[in-house]
Amino acid sequence: MKAEHTRKLIVLAAIWVALLLAPYWMAPLGGYTALATRVLVLGLAAMSLNFLLGFTGVLSFGHAAYFGLGAYGAGLTLKFLALSTPLALVAGMLLGGLCGAILGLLIVRRRGVYFAMVTIAFGQVFYYIAFQWSSLTGGDDGLRGFSRQPIDLGAFKLDILSSANSFYYFVLFCFALAVGVMGFILRSPFGRTMIAIRENERRSRFLGIPVERHIWIAFTLSCFFMGFAGALYALVNNFADPRGLHYSQSGDFVMMAVMGGMRSFWGPLLGATVFVVLQDYLSSVTVNWMSFVGLLFVLVVLFFPRGLLGFFQRSKA
């Protein structure tokens, strides 16, 4: 038990050291800091989805919608309301989370494939809104004409706009904040209840747990995290894309979570790293990268259904 605990601490320390030093070890390996920033943001999105998928056991296949809403929320705030990066982040998170809360009420009683289908279909609503409402959202071209703003810390200004490294550390700070809250929730009695529902819904119900309400809260929380990640993504690109709301983006997020390992807290981050780096590489070497990404889906499902972490843990045991 003691050894297990130490091992966990070492792994945790290794993850954070790797993240903190990423701008320095990525460049020699052929990466670039902006890629690390993207990995971090998409990793946060995959972890947010996994909060619902892996820990509550509910399959949402439309989570890109809340990610995209976060992006548009942040972009629209910077473009029309206020030139403030923190405000944009809050606005994006609220937009994603609140829309998730409302739609969650409609779908929370469904399970399994039905839940998946309804989340896909409702996710597409936001895609069409972003696509059709060109006067506000820029339609097919996406939302342009905004950029992240330097952060005024009183004593000095953090220039996250032109310095890639400062921006990476800013994103890492936001990531740590979100992941910290997520970890805290999962350790709380509420988090334990989520896991209980995943393991045996019927028994949880017999124990008097209001299952629907818990699933709704988990869904809503995960949409808030998703909106936050989306808002960060808008800052990464200074751009919000309607395709970021599309169900194919949701599929990518589910894939990241599954590929890394759904049952583990950090698995989705690993999955996102592999996925983003692989996609970045494939799209630079072949026009048929879609086939390879599709093949990756098929191979992971057939041969690594428990994800990379699950695979390693099993082979060690």
């Binding site: 194919s248 599929g251 599954v258 599709g294 990756l296 499902v301």
Partner: peptide, 14 residues
């Protein structure tokens, strides 16, 4: 059902 969903999703890409 998650797995068949992901598999056919990848298949659609291919």
């Amino acid at each position: 059902p998650l797995y068949s969903l992901l598999l056919t999703f990848g298949l659609a890409f291919m």
